[in-house]
Structure formats: C-alpha cells, structure tokens
C-alpha cells in the first residue's frame, strides 16, 4: 500500500463551467400562471378533484390533467409559515431583517407562494392576513417579482 501514500505534489487545475447561461421555459401551466399574473391581478392554480394546487401543477396525482382555475390576488391571503432572514447568501448581515413566508389564499390547498412580507419581525405570525402589493400593470414582466411583496392587512 505504501506506493499509494507516497508523497507527491498534486498541483490543482482550474476549471469553470463554460455555459453562458441557461434558459428555462415556464411549462404548460407555468405559462398560464405568469400570463395571468402579468395581465390580471391574479394567478392560476390547478384543481384536482376538490384540491387546489399552487403553483399550478400540470399533472394531478392520478396523472390526469388538472383544471386551471384563477385565484385572485386582490383578496386577503394568509401566512402559512415564515422565516426571518438576517444574513445574505455570503453570510453578511442584512441592514434590515427580511421576512420570507409561505402564503396561501385559503386553508385547504396544497402548496402556496413563497414571497416577501413587508413587516417588522415582532409583528409577524402564522395565520395573519396579508395582501399582495403588485407592480403597476405596465411594468410587469411575467415574473414572480411582478408581486413586489405581501403586506399585513390591518
């Protein structure tokens, strides 16, 4: 075995991913989701039986194609869960803690939207009512950031 352990210089070789970028298509129901968000103050969900799936899944658990239904963003939504973020990706302290929440339009759904909630850490709680703050129509790009954030409903 000694030869395997023989001391040996092992210079390192640099490499980098040559891909310039990836372009991801939204998919069948994803396209509906972003189109609706861009053109209306709403998103879409998939209805499989009585259950609502957000974001919309193309396929229901039984493999059938679900029904696409609109869910308004003008009504109050609820905080299903949340986390308070104090540091950025590189571990630097943020100027102001950020609240990231799982948001749902009603109780009996599968999934929800992950987005920012504009609130103070001490105000936040599960079950609170929130409302979407949307960008003006003309500025929307069909991206999740067309919703700027959710804010607490007084």
């Amino acid at each position: 075995m000694s030869m395997w352990r023989k001391k040996c210089t092992t210079p390192e070789y640099p490499g980098k991913m040559e891909t310039e970028k990836y372009v991801y298509t939204p998919g069948l129901h994803g396209l509906e989701f972003f189109k609706t968000l861009k053109e209306k103050d709403a998103i879409v969900a998939t209805k499989c039986g009585e259950t609502l799936y957000i974001p919309p899944t193309t396929l229901c658990p039984d493999f059938s194609k679900g029904e696409v239904v609109e869910v308004p963003l003008t009504n109050p939504w609820y905080i299903a869960s949340y986390t308070i973020v104090y540091e950025d990706m590189d571990g630097n302290k943020l100027d102001k803690p950020q609240i990231l929440a799982l948001l749902v339009p009603e109780e009996d759904i599968v999934g929800g939207i992950i987005h920012y909630v504009k609130a103070e850490p001490e105000e936040i709680d599960v079950g609170l009512m929130v409302k979407a703050k949307l960008k003006p129509r003309e500025k929307r790009e069909g991206k999740i950031t067309d919703i700027e954030y959710f804010e607490l409903v007084a």
Binding site: Y24, P26, G27, T58, F63
Partner: peptide, 10 residues
C-alpha cells in the same frame, strides 16, 4: 419545447 422537463416526462 414549452414543456418543462417533468411535463415532457408526464
């Protein structure tokens, strides 16, 4: 294709 990878599989 418009479909995502998982949609193509489906």
């Amino acid at each position: 294709m418009l479909e995502t990878s998982r949609e193509l599989a489906w």
